[in-house]
Design a protein around this nucleic acid. Structure first.
Lengths: 188, 188
DNA sequence: TAATGTCATCCTACTAGTAGGTAGGTATAT
DNA sequence: ATATACCTACCTACTAGTAGGATGACATTA
């Protein structure tokens, strides 16, 4: 018994590949080589690529939501919370990756149905969290508008990380995030 | 002689596939079937997939820059111009596609080198155009800041179209674009 | 006018390599 | 004895790409 280490190695590699190259940009062979296991053995842990994808997304979502809970504990101010939210993306960019679900959002048309649902759920969590925090600031604001503002924040950050990586210029992300925060602070 | 119609049919299909499914999400077989030509015959027009990709991007860029020129002719007000810029993305979203170069930006790590350069050039054109128009409004502003503001606009729109398509909710794009315009109008 | 050559536009038939996945086995630990 | 954690060997379907040929339009030449 190796304490499931191989399983987690596979999961880690699959996640990295998905964040760097997209769902259609890697294969079992890539993982096999990097983890040091035979291709067929990957099927012992994940019977299909789709099931592997689901496992990766669920873990990612769980960890991400954990970060959001931590932010709520560490910060009481809504703007500081959103600021820390944007900071969650920084290490991802610095490792030349995209947000897992941002990348898969681009791939959405090619994904197995079961994966699509998981990705949408991830973003529903994000919108909910952002809405709850924006509500602390914007009094008497409709749920619809809270959702719109949340989506705007998410879209801007996802686009920014994509453009920053493509241009090999991390400042594109940093500046966009900063602008976002400034505008939120000014608004009411 | 068929006036190159097959070549353009291939180009059209390849572009649609790239915008809907990404560079790794389609194959010669897909195009072959849709255009009604044998797989091998595609190589008559495009010796490699990379060369096909380059042709698609160059044409897309040329047409897109044509739209930007038209906007400059039709509108003299900087804000109206940027507004029309955001409108360029609407038909793309309504056809369930992404901006070609936005999609390829996500795929960037898996692309042949020659494609990467073409994509970056597309966005350089976009930043230049936006910078020139923002300059009409923001007096005494540095080139660097013009570039930052332009990248912010591009990133927000690219992210918005991606999130809108994934969520099957076009309003995510419409609202983000509208907010962008409102903020530009207010700023100085 | 008729024969000839050239070129574009396809085709059939094929290649090496890769994709995800399966069948059935072995070694080890509990 | 049973389950976990691998393995070898294999499969079918698909990947981009190649070799070489057929067809037909058009221009050149005899």
């Amino acid at each position: 018994m190796q304490l499931l280490s191989k399983k987690f190695e596979i999961l880690d590699l699959a996640q990295e590949m998905m964040q760097k190259r997209g769902y259609n940009g890697f294969s079992y062979a890539d993982i096999s080589e990097a983890v040091g296991i035979r291709k067929a053995s990957i099927h012992h842990y994940f019977p299909s690529k789709a099931s592997m994808g689901v496992a990766v997304i669920r873990r990612y979502r769980k960890i991400f939501n954990g970060h959001l809970e931590n932010i709520d504990k560490e910060e009481k101010n809504w703007l500081n919370r959103v600021n820390k939210y944007t900071k969650l993306y920084e290490p991802v960019l610095l490792e030349n990756k995209l947000c897992l679900c941002g990348m898969l959002a681009a791939d959405i048309e090619t994904l197995p149905k079961i994966l699509k649902k998981e990705i949408r759920d991830f973003f529903v969590d994000n919108v909910d969290w952002l809405s709850n925090n924006l509500k602390l600031h914007y009094k008497n604001i409709s749920k619809k508008r809270l959702s719109e503002l949340s989506w705007k924040i998410i879209a801007s950050l996802q686009g920014a990380i994509m453009m920053a990586r493509m241009s090999d210029n991390v400042d594109i992300f940093f500046f966009t995030a900063k602008e976002l925060l400034i505008q939120l602070e000014k608004s009411n």
